[in-house]
């Protein structure tokens, strides 16, 4: 177990470093001088040079990378050009919206997808299977921003159950905060759930054909018990892989969905920072998002070890 963990951790650190390097190089070779963007086109050359020196832009590229990544490690993500506040503070504020949104979406999609997928698998080829997989097929095809708009029309405008957009802040209370997040989370979760349900279905169907299911039935287990106790734990291994892969789509989705619902989250921050050429914010945020995807995949690897003893325990004795 510890060797598996050590290997995964080393891979995590190396991938994160590689991601940061790619982001940094991409931003460095991009045309546009941040100092010139801040001061505008009419700035005098000596003011420009002074600002460049202040921002450290006159240093060699390698040094700038080390400075930036060194700051990253101690939580200093640089200072936003447009807001003139530490990027770390911006991230902290916005993460308070985006993180719960992403987690809520992930939880919702899992809670919907796994029971639906298992149900469809257990009625393979019958009406229940055809109906749920038909709905899932539509779900896969629907773009999440359109779904978000439809949800707003139904639940906010027509039924008036939930707010249409905006975020009152967690100061307004947990319930008010959750109410504001539930529609965007659903808009993110449903298309994901559709994919996940299909993966779950095919994985469960495959597992149901395994010999050990027959062993379980021969023991006297009901079909239902064999399904949940023996098929599902085995079938979840590929499902968890897809969940890990979906997390990066979820993050990309938040950029769109936070704009649809005008939520002050990280996705909206990235969008605004790009629009305003706030390069250091973009650079730090994109790296942060990349690292979060890497961390989630690390967690997926850990989940594997928990789900599949063949990975974490030695072979034949």
């Amino acid at each position: 177990m510890s060797r598996y963990l050590l290997g995964r951790t080393i891979a995590l650190v190396l991938t994160a470093l590689a991601a940061s390097l790619v982001v940094f190089v991409a931003m460095a070779v991009l045309p546009g001088d941040p100092a010139a963007i801040i001061l505008g086109t009419g700035a005098r050359p000596d003011t420009l040079a002074a600002l460049r020196a202040e921002m450290g832009l006159d240093q060699p590229v390698a040094w700038r990378y080390l400075e930036w990544i060194g700051g990253f490690l101690v939580g200093d993500l640089g200072t936003s050009y447009t807001y003139s506040v530490p990027v770390a503070d911006l991230v902290a504020q916005r993460a308070a919206v985006s993180l719960p949104l992403a987690v809520l979406a992930l939880v919702l999609s899992t809670l919907i997808a796994i029971p639906v997928g298992v149900y469809a698998a257990s009625r393979r080829g019958r009406a229940g299977d055809v109906a749920t997989m038909g709905v899932a097929q539509v779900g896969v095809a629907v773009p999440n921003f359109w779904l978000g708009l439809m949800l707003v029309i139904l639940f906010a405008l027509t039924l008036g159950w939930l707010p249409a957009s905006g975020f009152p802040g967690w100061e307004a209370g947990l319930l008010a905060g959750l109410e504001a997040l539930i529609l965007p989370a659903l808009a993110l979760a449903l298309p994901q759930a559709a994919i996940l349900a299909r993966v779950t279905r095919s994985s469960v169907i495959e597992t149901l054909g395994e010999d050990f299911i027959r062993t379980a039935r021969a023991k006297g287990l009901s079909g239902e018990a064999a399904l949940w106790r023996h098929a599902v734990p085995n079938a979840l291994i590929p499902v968890v892989t897809i969940m890990g892969l979906q997390f990066s789509f979820l993050l990309a989705g938040t950029i769109i969905i936070e704009n649809v619902f005008t939520l002050p989250g990280l996705g909206r921050l990235v969008f605004q920072a790009i629009a305003q050429r706030d390069l250091i914010t973009v650079q730090s945020l994109v790296t942060l998002l990349a690292i979060s995807v890497i961390v989630v995949n690390f967690l997926v690897d850990l989940a594997y070890a928990a789900l599949d003893p063949r990975l974490s325990r030695g072979g034949a004795r």
Binding site: T215, L221, N234, L307, P309
Partner: peptide
């Protein structure tokens, strides 16, 4: 079927051909 579940494994049991796949890989 419900009553058969009480008979399978209790009164009639079965050993299968493929020991490599007859056991659930994720359970002790």
């Amino acid at each position: 079927e419900r009553e058969m579940q009480g008979i399978r494994g209790r009164r009639i049991a079965m050993v299968f051909q493929e020991p490599m796949t007859a056991l659930n890989p994720v359970k002790t």
